[in-house]
Design a protein around this nucleic acid. Structure first.
Lengths: 123, 123
DNA sequence: CAATGAGTTGATTGATTGATGAATTGATCG
DNA sequence: CGATCAATTCATCAATCAATCAACTCATTG
């Protein structure tokens, strides 16, 4: 819109904000982007349910379909998205394609999240 | 399997899927829903950048606005959403409202995520 | 109590995104 | 090879979501 580039609408006029003397460092935009992408991928009930199963053991698409009482193309779509974010890995064996969590870091992220979700009293 | 209700489009016909003999337990839908909501809230670059700042120390809305070079209403909106998910807490002091991460569990979730996002080579 | 600065709320709009089902590929076996 | 089961891909449509800005609240100060 304006030629005024990036002018903040509001700001504490002239106030010094380092009240406690501790300077903060801006997060790396690239790191934030990658991390947010992962969180976004985990932030869907269907996908998270799927991952909660894969956190227990490797499973093929049809078994996931069966356990989640959903249709196979839907599961496959979700797995594709999760694989594009390197959250799951796939391995073909005959007619079946087996999926598992990509690494232990992801497994921890998921179990920590689920733990938090379990503990929450309510709201 | 009795009636036609909820018939999956595809399934491994008659195959036994517990090849390794380990039964999986379905995740609690309520836990999944709450956890997914938290992950979804973390899964946005603007919100995550904001949280990365709050992970360092408590800050008021204007300081966040300044550090993130954004406009105040936008920041406030994001904080509102994060507060509704109990990810941040707010505390008023005079004209200023100070925000911080809601609890240590959330702080860990965020720092673990960012750590993962830093390590990833790329693709 | 008027003025000002800090923050919130509400409504609208544009962009993402997830669900769905048909068509396609890949693999095994008779 | 042709049949069949497993899985992926593609395109469309509806629902969700984030940005934006004006209007409003709340607290302080002159």
């Amino acid at each position: 819109m304006g030629t005024m580039e990036n002018e903040p609408t509001h700001a504490c006029l002239g106030e010094q904000h380092a009240e406690n003397g501790v300077a903060v460092q801006l997060p790396d935009p690239l790191v934030c982007a990658r991390t947010a992408a992962i969180f976004r991928a985990l932030g869907d009930v269907s996908r998270l349910s799927l991952l909660a199963l894969l956190a227990q053991r490797e499973m093929c698409v049809s078994e996931l379909t069966e356990k989640l009482s959903d249709n196979l193309p839907a599961i496959s779509q979700r797995l594709k998205l999760l694989r594009s974010e390197r959250i799951v890995r796939s391995r073909r064996q005959g007619k079946h394609v087996y999926y598992s969590l990509a690494d232990n870091h992801i497994a921890l992220l998921i179990s920590n999240g689920l733990e938090h979700g379990s503990e929450e009293p309510h709201g």
